[in-house]
Nucleic acid binder design. Structure first.
Lengths: 229, 229
DNA sequence: GACAAGCAGATTGTCGACAATCTAACAAGA
DNA sequence: TCTTGTTAGATTGTCGACAATCTGCTTGTC
């Protein structure tokens, strides 16, 4: 028999599609932080009953981008400056760990995939598709987690990614201007191909710090506005 | 008005209670790894309809202790040696980070709470209540996460805890003998009260390694058995 | 005018029934 | 004998309706 590994076929439950739809809406900022999700309304719009919608919402609550209060409703999480700081500082630690674990496992396939994802970022940048740019940048960054051969680490990263993507999207929408050049990624990719692991780890940490400053400033603005209400 | 902070009242939805019941059943090993959860049967036993039960199961799937295959069923996750290795290696990294962040925030309340939780472990050990012993030991360990003032880190730890507790419970049930002395915790508590952060971090890492060896041996046994089927 | 009680509307939580899908056993054909 | 098609039973996925709860308004009382 020919060695042909098929990928698992797509989940064809309504629930899975609803999860994907809602997640996308939240991460792109179509649903704003703090906004309430009215079950009846959303169910009608999606032409779906409330049962699978509610199950989907439970998943997103556990995923950390929705929050639920019994008999009151389910809401998109609020974003505070502290949340962003917390997420980023944890991300730094995880990055360091992921690079350490991935390092000895790097091979040609890794380098090829690294280039492929880097190209995707450049493509999105050229097309000025900011949403896709965030997505692809996070996917590029996520490669070290996929390669680290640690399923628990990968899961943790994926949870964190949801939030990071949401934060970035908020940020981008707020300042509404073209996104940073991809120089940072250029250096990152070069370092990940190189032989100095410590340098790669250091860069990952600093690279994050870079965009972090801007993001944080935005978050502080959010908090001030929130205080007025 | 008197400064009196009330704790939030309990969630009174069936769903929340079902989650708690199921989680406990899984973490104590009443529901074995790989076992299928029949919705109809469980719903009848709990005198509850399938709707809240299914929502509860979605939460536990996202929490990482159940796994779901569309139209096939929801199962307790299987435990492999690799899973345990992965969880522990990540735990080491997180511990180091948590201690670093908690360190400057330690105060009298922290020390008191540390002692309180340590006493709880000792009490459970005296009572030879192995399940409770695991719980309390993890709670003692979790204090650094609660104190680190990083919500994302805390969430991550709580997710990880579920698994660790499940692994430990499996292990204990398998060897079915009294549990290790609490000397390890004694040293840990002392170090957390001391002034040498590096020493505390080092100990946390080694302490984990200790039980880890046994747990890992057990996990390898599990894998061999699985291969026979 | 201030405040508590009570009511109406809207929304979430839960239920029982039906539809879609899977599994396993069996039958038919090469 | 092996494979393929069929079918019955069981189980999961989805639906529409009802119950429980919350929110805001109105009303009545002081």
């Amino acid at each position: 028999m020919a060695k042909l590994d098929f990928s698992p076929i797509a989940d064809t439950t309504r629930r899975a599609e609803i999860v994907a739809l809602l997640r996308r809406a939240i991460l792109t900022g179509q649903l704003e932080p703090g906004q309430k999700l009215n079950e009846l309304r959303i169910a009608e719009q999606m032409r779906v009953s409330r049962a699978p919608l509610r199950e989907a919402m439970r998943e997103l609550v556990q995923e950390g981008i929705l929050t639920s209060i019994p008999y009151a409703g389910t809401f998109v999480i609020e974003v505070t400056a502290k949340d962003i700081i917390d997420a980023y500082s944890l991300n730094q630690v995880l990055d360091e760990f992921a690079i350490e674990r991935t390092w000895p496992l790097r091979d040609q396939r890794f380098f090829d995939e690294l280039d492929r994802r880097h190209d995707a970022v450049k493509e999105a940048t050229r097309a000025k598709d900011t949403t896709r740019q965030i997505e692809t940048a996070l996917q590029l960054h996520g490669l070290i987690y996929e390669w680290a051969d640690n399923s628990v680490l990968l899961e943790t990263w994926q949870r964190l990614t949801s939030r990071l993507q949401m934060y970035f999207a908020l940020h981008q929408r707020a300042r509404n201007e073209p996104v940073p050049a991809e120089d940072v990624h250029e250096t990152y990719v070069a370092l990940m191909k190189g032989s100095d692991m410590r340098a790669a780890q250091r860069h990952a940490r600093e690279h994050i710090d870079l965009d972090f400053e801007e993001l944080l400033a935005y978050a502080r603005g959010l908090e001030k506005r929130a205080l007025k209400n």
